[in-house]
Simulated scan of single mutants.
Amino acid sequence: MSSVIVRIPGVDVPDERGRTGLDRAGRDLTGNPDVVVRDVELIASGWHVLRRTTFDYRHADGRWTRERRETYDRGNGATVLPYDLARGTVLLARQFRYPVYVNGHPDGMLLEAAAGLLDDDEPEAAIRREAEEELGVTLGALTHVFDVYMSPGSVTERLHFYAAPYRPSDRTGAGGGIADEGEDIAVVELPFAEALAMIGDGRIADAKTVMLLQWAALHVFS
């Protein structure tokens, strides 16, 4: 009787994106002696990757417990707030976001700062690319604001935040995103004071955008 070898896409054979070894993430971590990774299970590997990790955790009182956590790995990203200090404006993007639509947002249309995944680029190169694709603006000097884990309880993503001045002449394209990737983005130029007020009344409800606008209130438009 012959045994059947089960090969798992994303583990020992390529998944739809050509990836293998997706169950290896975290197995070699040694930075925290109170955490010992025991097993990593690949749950799903669609566009992004969902894993279940089993690890032993030593508590402050010395007790060891066995824990399990699911992590969603979508890669790291970058975001930027272009601002025109002379005219008192900022450039934002409006687009449909299904996750917020299914979780109570009236129409799923979010007003937010341009952002995107790094893919294989450095953060500055990635956000320049996204600004051109989404907003149609060519950015000059970038200010690095901070790097933030946006949802550390379950999502591995670290987002790199930037701000950059722009002038009307820097709006070199139409923006709108990449149609082949399903993007349908409207470019919105707003007075900064209005954008800031939109946080208070809920018209801006995106975390990265709130953070960048609050930073700009302290460091740019103060």
Rank of each mutant, 00 (worst) to 15 (best):
P9T: 07
P9E: 03
D12M: 04
V13W: 01
P14A: 02
T20K: 05
D23R: 06
N32I: 13
V35L: 14
V37Q: 13
V37G: 11
E41C: 08
L42I: 09
L42A: 09
I43S: 03
I43G: 02
W47P: 00
H48N: 14
T53N: 07
Y57K: 11
R58I: 04
R58W: 04
H59Q: 13
A60K: 12
D61Q: 07
R69A: 12
R69M: 10
E70Y: 08
G75S: 05
N76E: 08
A78T: 08
T79F: 02
P82E: 09
Y83S: 08
Y83C: 07
D84R: 10
L85K: 15
L85S: 12
A86E: 09
L92R: 03
F96R: 13
G104E: 03
P106C: 12
P106T: 10
M109T: 01
L111E: 01
A114I: 11
P123Y: 10
E124F: 03
E124W: 02
R129P: 02
A131Y: 10
G136L: 07
G136S: 07
A141C: 05
T143E: 12
V145D: 01
F146N: 11
S154R: 13
F161T: 02
A163Y: 04
P165V: 08
S169D: 12
S169G: 09
D170E: 09
R171K: 14
G175F: 04
D180N: 09
D184M: 09
I185D: 00
V187D: 03
V187Y: 08
L190H: 05
P191W: 02
L196S: 09
M198L: 07
D201F: 03
G202Y: 00
G202M: 02
R203A: 02
K208G: 04
K208W: 04
K208H: 10
T209A: 04
M211E: 05
L212R: 07
W215H: 13
W215R: 11
L218T: 14
